[in-house]
Nucleic acid binder design. Structure first.
Lengths: 200, 200
DNA sequence: CCTTGACTTGACCAATCGGTCAACTATACT
DNA sequence: AGTATAGTTGACCGATTGGTCAAGTCAAGG
């Protein structure tokens, strides 16, 4: 049996898991403390507010993503097409695992938070906007490399990268709404075929 | 000056506007009552719970959509391509108006609610899933008519309709997260170009 | 040994949450 | 006129919300 992580980490991970499984507003500080086995006083020793905790949760989630799915998918050893394919595979596998464990497709944690809080918490919206920019940039770089290998006439690379990202998020939202991971299998791979052309 | 609508309607519309502008959890029954100029006792005379009210709000929103954007876009007098174009135009115009009035892109009211509540309120998730199905069906019919006019080789019509809908939702989510209606101008029209092909 | 500072604890706060209820008013039908 | 019914009102409920705080524990450093 492994020793428990330190208090800060327990709070962070409890909050991350609870919020991802439901929503920001639905998860109280009390519930986070219970799951983390921490008293509320300790919570506020490490985090000045629930909002600050959430900002840290977003960072933590992105770091986790970078060290797993993103690292594996956007590996230099893969061709652009293989990178996209790997990204879809890993995303589908993860969502299927979560669905099997929780009974729900949870979708994209950033998209979830952004949808809920974009209009009422500007700090969180900005943080996720920046993060979306980085993910979009990953798509763009992959796309640039793909085009370098095989020229595509009149392709608007920036718009296509943004469109691919939007499509990806939309498919996650649809799978969550239908609570059906099969949606991902059917739709996600088409992300790589999406093209937006320059107006002439 | 127009006379006020009846109590039921005032509650429904107040709730619709408040929830759309922020989120389900963020809007309390009290706030709804204040905006509707109704006492809490009256609220519970018309609606047994906040959840039931929300189900009615979803219906109300869909009816409104059917009588405005959907009716105008999916008119029998328009060609399939024109229908898509009209849908994008009207959607962009509405989101731009909302952005101008509130300072925020609010996105899709159904997508917003689904994202927030899909995992914690099965009744609401089901209602939105059904509604998504109807919207997706509109896309499918339009697509079928387009293909009848101009055959597209190996097109998976069902998957493409579902993909178009997902893309549409994803673009709305992205515009909301970036709080920038220009995202819609750049990305929404590409919905009509999206294609998912049969595997051979 | 004693102090310092990080951490923990549990009691506590005002405010708000969704929801209830008995009493009251106004309208409509017999 | 009398009664039934729909709608309104404001006080009230227990539970929970995010957040505070004084008092305490504990290990490290002088």
């Amino acid at each position: 049996m492994s020793t428990q992580p330190d208090t800060y980490t327990r709070i962070l991970e409890a909050a991350r898991d609870l919020i991802y499984a439901s929503s920001y507003a639905d998860v109280g500080v009390q519930a986070i403390c219970e799951k983390a086995e921490v008293k509320k006083g300790s919570f506020y020793h490490f985090f000045p507010s629930k909002q600050e905790l959430t900002l840290a949760v977003i960072d933590n989630y992105y770091e986790g993503l970078k060290d797993s799915i993103l690292r594996e998918a956007f590996s230099a050893s893969l061709s652009p097409a293989e990178r996209f394919q790997k990204l879809f595979e890993l995303t589908i596998a993860r969502q299927e695992l979560i669905h099997q464990q929780t009974g729900h497709v949870l979708g994209c944690p950033f998209g979830n938070l952004a949808t809920e809080l974009a209009t009422s918490d500007e700090a969180i919206r900005c943080k996720i906007e920046g993060l979306f920019g980085r993910l979009q940039e990953l798509m763009r770089e992959t796309l640039v490399e793909a085009v370098a290998r095989e020229k595509i006439e009149d392709l608007d690379i920036d718009a296509t990268a943004e469109g691919m990202f939007a499509y990806f998020e939309g498919v996650m939202l649809l799978a969550k709404t239908k609570n059906d991971p099969a949606v991902l299998r059917k739709l996600l791979p088409a992300t790589a075929q999406l093209r937006i052309h320059n107006i002439n």
